[in-house]
Simulated scan of single mutants.
Amino acid sequence: MQAPQYHIIAAAIEYILEHFLEQPNLETVAAQVHVSPFHLQRMFTEWAGISPKRFLQYITADYLKQKLQHTPNLQEAASIAGLSAQSRVYDLFVTLEAVTPQQFRTGGESVIIRYGYHNTPFGPAFLAATVKGIVSLGFLEPGQEAQVLAKLHKDWPQAQMVVDDPFTAHLVRQIFSAQRGEKLHVLVKGTNFQVKVWEALLRLPLGSVVTYAKIAEYIGHPKAVRAVGAAVGANPVALLIPCHRVIRKEGVLGEYHWGATRKKLLLGYEMSRADSEEHPLL
Rank of each mutant, 00 (worst) to 15 (best):
S36N: 10
W47E: 07
G49T: 13
L171C: 01
H153K: 14
T120L: 13
W47Q: 11
Q66T: 08
D165A: 14
R114Q: 12
M43Q: 09
H118D: 01
L127F: 07
G138L: 09
H70D: 07
M161Y: 02
Y58Q: 09
K53Q: 14
P142S: 11
P37T: 15
F55E: 03
I112V: 15
L137T: 03
F55Y: 13
Y63D: 02
G108R: 05
V89S: 12
S79C: 05
F55H: 13
P157F: 05
K154D: 05
E76T: 15
Q102H: 15
T168C: 00
R105T: 12
W47L: 08
R88L: 13
A85M: 08
P101C: 05
Y58S: 09
P157G: 08
L40D: 12
Q103F: 04
F44L: 07
T168K: 00
E76D: 05
I112H: 12
L92R: 14
F176R: 02
G138A: 05
H118G: 03
V89W: 08
V99G: 00
F126C: 01
W47P: 04
K53E: 10
D155R: 03
R42N: 07
D164S: 05
T168F: 00
S136K: 15
A98S: 10
P121N: 07
L152R: 09
P37K: 11
I175D: 02
L137A: 10
Y117N: 04
V172L: 08
G123C: 03
A98R: 10
H170D: 08
Y63V: 05
R42F: 06
K67M: 12
L127S: 00
